[in-house]
Design a protein around this nucleic acid. Structure first.
Length: 247
DNA sequence: GCTCCGGCCCGTCAGTTGTA
DNA sequence: TACAACTGACGGGCCGGAGC
């Protein structure tokens, strides 16, 4: 097995384990459904060509059923396995429930101002000028001064770049002025590059939020474990005090 | 030194969700 | 409803540690 194939195999199994744990915890998704869904999605998209034994069994079982039923089931499963809210949302909800949990800040515009204490991380800025206006492609991530209040878990503010049209400026022609196929192709390429650039940044942001979310969960676990331990000790103490003496 | 393995990060694609 | 934002999944590269 190649390295990537192995990685994929591990990731697939991890995902399945996670789904099984989730279903055991809340009981909302039966194992068979989760497995079937996972396996089916993978087979349909041609991804993850190495299904687990459970997946193989489920696929075989499912394929025997009527075609129409499987379509209906598929849609039902899609509804059950609806996407969870974004990490920003989850973490913000957590922060509102539990004091001390840092918030992932919403994007702030330049007009709202940023803290003078913020030392912006050096991020190259490139701005695309399009027919519809200016896109600020790369934002600057700055550790927020709020981090000082929340201990070791920094929050970040997303700042708009302050400079106007630095390196990497691409001037796009307005769609109305495009006539030749070459110009159309160039415009399509520009649009694609713009989309990729945005998605690249979005992926970075998403990963950063995910890390923050995981850190937040880990810290919550630590706090709750301590709390649990204290409660158990307290319970034992109370038992000692109030239990009738048998001798 | 070489190979294998596992972890981490990145860019991209595809699908979902939010919103104007 | 179109579009932007978000995110899971994938493939690939890099790096450090372990075993040989």
């Amino acid at each position: 097995m190649s390295k990537c194939g192995r990685k994929k195999y591990i990731k697939t199994n991890l995902r399945q384990m996670t789904m099984e744990i989730d279903s055991q915890q809340d009981g909302s998704i039966p194992d068979s459904v989760a497995e079937s869904e996972s396996a089916h999605m993978q087979m349909q998209t041609g991804q993850n060509s190495i299904p687990t034994l459970a997946q193989v069994a489920t696929i075989a079982e499912t394929d025997e059923s009527a075609e129409s039923e499987s379509v209906i089931d598929f849609h039902k499963r899609r509804e059950i396995l609806s996407r969870r809210p974004s990490y920003r949302k989850i973490l913000n909800e957590l922060s509102s429930d539990v004091p001390g949990v840092p918030k992932i800040e919403e994007e702030k515009s330049e007009e709202e101002g940023t803290s003078p204490n913020i030392a912006a991380m050096a991020v190259p800025t490139s701005i695309y000028q399009t027919s519809t206006g200016q896109y600020n492609e790369e934002t600057e991530l700055a550790p927020s001064h709020m981090a000082a209040t929340t201990g070791d878990m920094p929050t970040y503010q997303i700042r708009a770049p302050t400079t106007a049209l630095p390196q990497g400026v691409v001037m796009a022609a307005s769609p109305g002025s495009l006539h030749s196929p070459q110009q159309l192709a160039e415009e399509a390429t520009r649009k694609r590059e713009l989309r990729l650039m945005k998605n690249r940044e979005a992926a970075k942001e998403c990963r950063r939020r995910k890390k923050e979310y995981v850190k937040c969960l880990e810290s919550r676990v630590a706090v709750l474990e301590v709390q649990n331990k204290k409660l158990i000790e307290e319970l034992e103490t109370l038992k000692d005090i109030y239990s009738p003496k048998t001798d």
